[in-house]
Design a protein around this nucleic acid. Structure first.
Length: 491
DNA sequence: AATGCGCGCAACCGCCTGCGG
DNA sequence: TCCGCAGGCGGTTGCGCGCAT
C-alpha cells in the first residue's frame, strides 16, 4: 500500500476543488461520476481528523480540470505539491502520470500510423524496452502508449507464431548477429558512433544506454534504425550500428556473393540535423517494397547495406529510386502479384529449405550469446554478443552455413535490382574489409565518420496513410503473409 | 440474449537515480 | 558519506468494451 495517508486538505483547497469540479466538463462521466460522488461522500464522512486516503483508479473530468489548472498556474514538476495545493486526492506520481500521459498539450491520440508502427519496431530493435527513449522519438506519443502497443502487439504476434520484427528489421538483426561472430572486438554499436554524428537522431545517451542496458543476451545489439525516421522527409543517412561482415567469415560471403544486389549511391556527406518536428517518413515507391505489410508496395524492405567505409551513402528517396529500382519486369511482376519478395521467394526452387532456414534465422536471433573469447576484450556494456549455438543447440558452424545459404537465397530475391553493376562494383571494392578482419568501426571518438562508419541506407516506406489497424499490422496478413507463408516457421 | 474471452488501455507498483541537506 | 525526497522508468494489473460462440 504505497498510498500514504495524507492530512485532510485545507478548506480553501477543498473549496477551490469544488469550484473547479462544479465548472468541470459535464461529459464523459458515466460510472466515474458515481465513483467520484461516492468518494466525495466518503471524504466528507471521514473529515473528522480522519486521514485522507488518496484516491486510486480512473481520473474524473473534474480531477483533470484541477490538475490542468494547477499545472497552468505552477508549471510541471513538484507533483507532490499538487495534492497539498489543490486538495486533489491523488499522489504526486499519479498526477505526473496523468499529466504526461493524458493531459499535457500536443499529445497525439488515436492509433499509431503505419509509419509510427514501423518506427516503433525499429526503435525497439535499437533500444529494447526503453519506452521513454522511444517516446522521445515519437512526438506526441507517450512511453505508456508505446509500451502498451508493443506489448499487445508482441503478444499477439507471438501467439500467432509470427516474428516480432518486420523482415527488414529481422534481417538487420541477423546482420548484426553475424557481425558479432565476425569480430567481437568490433562493437556493433558504439556510443561514439551514434554520438559522433548528427546524422543520427538517436543521441549518445540512447546509444550508450542501449549498449549498456539489456543487449547482452537475447536481444541483438542495437541497430541504428531510428535516426532515419526522425530525419523527416529529408535524405536519410544512417550510420549503421551493424558493421559489415568480414570476408574471413562465412558470414561475409552472402554479401560478397550478392554484392551486385546492393546499391551504394554516393552522394554528398551532408548530414541532416536532427529534426525536432513530427516524424515524417519519406515515401518510397512500391517497387522498393519488400512485400511486407498489407500494401506490398509501400512497406519496408530490407535495406541495402553499404559497407563502404569511405562512401557515405545519403539516399534521398529520389536518389534511391533509380539506384534501387528493380527491373521493369520485376516491378511489373510485383505489381501483378502484389508482393515483390514474397513472390520471388515463393517461386524460388528452394523455398522449402528456405522456409526451414528462415526459422533457424529466427531462432538464431534469439540465441543466447556465449562469453566472447578472452582475447576479444570485454564489451559486455556493448551487449549484443551473439554466440554460435542456436537455441536448440545447433552447432555454430552449421547454423552459419544455413544462414549463409539463406542469405544467398533471400538477398537475390529481395533485391532483384541486380542490374546495377556500378553500385555493385562500389560495394565489391568498398566491401573489402580492413585486414584486421573487422568492419571499419570507430576506434576513437575523434575518428572521422566518413572514413569509418558503416553506412546503412534504410529508407522508410510509408504505409499509404490511414491509421493502424489489424489490416495494417505488418506481416499479420495481407501481402506480408505471402512472405510469411513461404517462410512458414517464422511467420 | 447470455456468456466467455481476448484486447486495448489506463493506472498502479516497485525499483532506480539524481539531488540537496 | 549518508539519508530522505522527488521524479522517472519499466513491468504488471485491473477494468471496460467488443466480438464470437
Amino acid at each position: 500500500m504505497e498510498e500514504m495517508i495524507k492530512p485532510a486538505p485545507a478548506p480553501a483547497s477543498s473549496e477551490e476543488e469544488k469550484e473547479v469540479m462544479a465548472t468541470a466538463a459535464t461529459g464523459e462521466r458515466r460510472h466515474e461520476e458515481a465513483t467520484a460522488g461516492r468518494e466525495e461522500q466518503e471524504e466528507e464522512e471521514g473529515e473528522e481528523e480522519a486521514p485522507v486516503v488518496l484516491k486510486k483508479g480512473p481520473w474524473t473530468t473534474a480531477e483533470d480540470a484541477v490538475l490542468v489548472q494547477h499545472v497552468r498556474q505552477n508549471g510541471e514538476g513538484n507533483w507532490n505539491a499538487v495534492q497539498r495545493m489543490t486538495g486533489l486526492l491523488r499522489c504526486g506520481k499519479s498526477c505526473r502520470l496523468r499529466w504526461t500521459n493524458h493531459l499535457r498539450p500536443n499529445l497525439k491520440k488515436g492509433s499509431f500510423s503505419p509509419d509510427e508502427e514501423l518506427l516503433i519496431a525499429q526503435l525497439h530493435a535499437q533500444l529494447g524496452n526503453k519506452w521513454a527513449r522511444m517516446a522521445s522519438h515519437l512526438p506526441g506519443r507517450t512511453d505508456n502508449e508505446i509500451k502498451n502497443y508493443w506489448n499487445t502487439r508482441t503478444k499477439r504476434r507471438q501467439r500467432a507464431g509470427l516474428p516480432v520484427y518486420p523482415p527488414d528489421v529481422q534481417l538487420h538483426l541477423a546482420f548484426a548477429k553475424r557481425c558479432r561472430y565476425d569480430d567481437f572486438s568490433s562493437p556493433l554499436s558504439s556510443p561514439q558512433q551514434s554520438a559522433g554524428s548528427n546524422v543520427l537522431s538517436m543521441d549518445a545517451a540512447d546509444a550508450a544506454g542501449a549498449a549498456s542496458s539489456g543487449y547482452t543476451s537475447a536481444r541483438p545489439p542495437p541497430l541504428d534504425l531510428a535516426g532515419q525516421l526522425t530525419m523527416g522527409s529529408r535524405p536519410v543517412q544512417l550510420l549503421a550500428a551493424t558493421p559489415f561482415s568480414a570476408p574471413s567469415s562465412p558470414w561475409g560471403k552472402p554479401f560478397a556473393r550478392n554484392a551486385q544486389f546492393f546499391q551504394f549511391p554516393h552522394s554528398s556527406p551532408v548530414s541532416p540535423t536532427t529534426p525536432t518536428g513530427p516524424v515524417h517518413v519519406h515515401p518510397v515507391t512500391p517497387e522498393l517494397s519488400l512485400g511486407y505489410g498489407p500494401h506490398a508496395g509501400d512497406r519496408a524492405r530490407l535495406p541495402p547495406v553499404s559497407p563502404s567505409p569511405g562512401a557515405r551513402a545519403e539516399l534521398p528517396s529520389s536518389q534511391l529510386r533509380p539506384a534501387m529500382a528493380p527491373t521493369t519486369a520485376t516491378a511489373a511482376a510485383a505489381a501483378t502479384t502484389g508482393v515483390l519478395v514474397g513472390g520471388a521467394l515463393q517461386d524460388h526452387p528452394n523455398a522449402a529449405s528456405l522456409e526451414a532456414m528462415l526459422q533457424e534465422l529466427h531462432d538464431a536471433i534469439k540465441i543466447e550469446p556465449p562469453a566472447p573469447p578472452e582475447n576479444r576484450g570485454t564489451e559486455e556494456g556493448g551487449g549484443g554478443d551473439l554466440r554460435g549455438v542456436s537455441g536448440d543447440g545447433k552447432p555454430e558452424v552449421e547454423l552459419k552455413d544455413d544462414i549463409e545459404t539463406l542469405f544467398d537465397l533471400i538477398i537475390p530475391a529481395t533485391f532483384p535490382a541486380a542490374a546495377a553493376p556500378e553500385p555493385a562494383a562500389a560495394m565489391a571494392s568498398s566491401a573489402a574489409p580492413n585486414h584486421s578482419g573487422s568492419v571499419s568501426q570507430h576506434s576513437s571518438e575523434d575518428q572521422d565518420h566518413s572514413n569509418a562508419d558503416v553506412v546503412l541506407d534504410l529508407p522508410i516506406l510509408t504505409g499509404g496513410g490511414g491509421g493502424s489497424s489489424e489490416q495494417d499490422d505488418w506481416s499479420l496478413d495481407g501481402a506480408a503473409c505471402q512472405w510469411n507463408n513461404i517462410s512458414g516457421g517464422i511467420c
